[in-house]
């Protein structure tokens, strides 16, 4: 039997690998989409970006400041 012969098993493995690949691709796309959606809605995110800026935090109380 030649080593290159295609067996039903190889077809099944190919199908499984393809299915897994597509599933992982869909998962990555979903996480990416979720990230975009979360970032777009993150209106208060800038207050905590890199350095905490108290003047942008709506919950923070700054003594003497007119808010």
């Amino acid at each position: 039997m030649p080593l290159t012969q295609e067996h039903e098993l190889h077809k099944r493995r190919w199908g499984r690998n393809l299915g897994l690949g597509l599933t992982l691709g869909a998962f990555i796309a979903l996480v990416f989409g979720l990230t975009i959606a979360k970032v777009q809605q993150g209106s208060q995110m800038q207050g905590f970006d890199h350095t905490y800026r108290i003047e942008m935090d709506p919950d923070a109380r700054i003594p003497g400041a007119n808010r």
Partner: peptide
């Protein structure tokens, strides 16, 4: 096929 542990994607 039975018991080979080489299930197809559809099996999962």
């Amino acid at each position: 096929r039975e018991g080979t542990g080489d299930a197809g994607f559809r099996d999962y």
